[in-house]
Design a protein around this nucleic acid. Structure first.
Lengths: 337, 337
DNA sequence: CCGCGCCATATGAACGTTCAAATCGTCTCC
DNA sequence: GGAGACGATTTGAACGTTCATATGGCGCGG
């Protein structure tokens, strides 16, 4: 754009080349309707005057805002959520590629928060939602589906029937890759540091560990599993419990990077070299993983592809489900024996 | 709201109680103009029909969107930014309290990114910006001020004159609190783990350490300062350098939690108990700080108050500047001697 | 008792776009 | 050569608000 003083209107652009509003409008929205030469002149004028369609006017007419609603992850507890922060960034970028934008909001979890969604829709502030951090029994997918509101979720819409399109990462498969990696390094007794039962994501990852271990005829006995919160501290005490058991594992598979960090801390305390002594792995490949010493072997979630897929489900509005494969990122913490 | 099928319009609400659109409009925007009884009936009808003003229509008329533009912190490098994520959450909540919302976007740093700001304005997608992570020589404040675009920054608009209103945290004062705390615990030789020179925030915190230490007649010689990136690894090697020096400090003051985490890791490796052996402190009081063992003494940034202030500067559009005091959060890593 | 001002409410217009339908040539085909 | 079809462009209306102004009733002072 050459000149960009302020807010040229469709009418002004049209007057500038002696055509009607609609012709200029078509230049942007339905170029095939225009005579090639007219199209060219229109585009030139648009560029010269720095015209950009007024989103409010367009939205008023088309009854849509071009905005996608996204609920921020609550910050109440002291929990790190680097993955979700990365996802939000990716979502934002992916939305821009489609000439849309992300509108943020906050809402309490559960039924209680539905009012906020209703309100945004009533105001026509957004015309679709991207759900994240769907919980088991989350009322949102059903509620939105009932009302015919376009939405797509990052994370399975756990429970009762297919309520809507979602994209998720195959956590079980990610864990299987981890176990296979450790097995190939010679580990034959692999412990699991998990979250408390009832979390869809955490249970899925545990399942992956169990299935893969069984596949290699490794033990998956209860004494190899410790469950707790998603904190460094929980990882530390969990690791201690496993290492102090009668037949301690030689590798610790953690359900997240935060938990793995705790395991690393415990090893450091005890003077056990992570990697060469006891192997440790995380999940999510957050910035934490690359920053520790030794670097933490982890499983990278393809956030960009997830965001891309979520938006594409939003557009095509097929009731599709898609499970993406995460990628094992090997660093020194899983060692070499 | 009792019934909330879909999109009641002003006209419909008006018809429902036999008045004109404008009367209902006034019930929301200028209640003082209405007869008390009419007001009551109007509000009742609004509630009954679940009316919510259409944001596009309102925005078209008033030439404003009620949206605040916010550039997401870039994710290119593997850097943790829990503070900014928290701030974004707080900003979002504070905006909602004023019946506004945050619209996210991405933009490259520097001059190059200004086009994105221009575009959002041209489309009237946002009517104000909140800037964060302002850099030394950041072109945005000046650019926006020139064009009369409302904005406010979290972070000083470093350099050349007062370009616009900002809110910031007094990092120097935060560090002074840290030093005073350590001094009161008996530390007389306090090292500093900082970022590389040229970062406004980092330099400010270093200044705070220096001034406070001088105030207690402690040494601030060059050998007590190590500078590097904002990573765990940098903190670890920095801590090693300080502890291996001729006259090692008994306390390590880190410029951020991530850096402090590295220092904690090094102490663990060497079997030195953090806190009782060598004291360590961080900055920002991110979730990391509470999750380590021992808990990391840190300095909490009042993100909610910052967000509140930023928005209030946006409204009053005074060229105000406001420096908030952070709060020392004492945990076990600073020890007890 | 009349005009003035004030209060409460109503009406017309405008914001800038897109949709639906109208216009006006031009070209084709029988 | 005229009907019809088609291509390119224009026109009128509508989306749902708010602004500016108009209307009408009522009390008050001269």
């Amino acid at each position: 754009m050459t000149g960009n003083r302020a807010g040229a209107t469709l009418e002004q652009v049209a007057a500038h080349i002696g055509v009607s509003r609609q012709t200029v409008s078509n230049a942007l929205n339905a170029p095939h309707r225009l005579h090639p030469e007219t199209l060219e002149r229109a585009l030139a004028a648009i560029d010269e005057l720095g015209y950009r369609p007024n989103r409010n006017a367009r939205g008023l007419r088309t009854r849509s805002s071009g905005l996608i609603g996204y609920r921020m992850t609550p910050r109440n507890r002291g929990v790190l959520t680097p993955l979700m922060d990365d996802f939000l960034h990716a979502l934002c970028a992916a939305a821009e590629a489609r000439d849309r934008h992300v509108l943020l909001f906050t809402a309490p979890p559960g039924e209680e928060g539905l009012g906020v969604y209703a309100d945004l829709l009533a105001q026509r502030a957004v015309d679709a939602f991207v759900l994240a951090e769907t919980l088991v029994g989350d009322p949102r997918p059903g509620w939105l589906a009932e009302r015919g509101v376009p939405f797509a979720a990052f994370g399975r819409t756990w429970g009762r029937g297919e309520a809507g399109p979602w994209v998720d990462v195959d956590g079980a498969h990610g864990m299987a890759q981890v176990v296979e990696h450790l097995y190939s390094l010679g580990h034959r007794r692999i412990g699991f540091l998990g979250w408390r039962e009832g979390d869809g994501v955490g249970d899925d990852r545990l399942r992956g560990w169990r299935i893969a271990a069984e596949g290699f005829a490794l033990s998956t006995e209860d004494s190899l599993v410790v469950r707790g919160g998603n904190t460094i501290d929980a990882g530390r005490s969990g690791a201690a419990a496993l290492l102090d058991s009668a037949d301690p594992p030689t590798a610790l598979v953690a359900v997240s990077d935060a938990v793995a960090l705790g395991a690393l801390a415990l090893l450091a305390e005890r003077g056990i070299p992570a990697g060469t002594g006891v192997a440790v792995t995380g999940f999510d490949d957050s910035p934490l993983a690359a920053a520790t010493l030794p670097g933490l072997t982890s499983v990278r979630q393809p956030v960009e592809r997830i965001a891309e897929q979520v938006l594409s489900l939003l557009d095509h509005q097929s009731t599709n489900e898609s499970l993406l494969r995460p990628e094992l990122v090997v660093r020194a913490s899983s060692g070499r024996r």
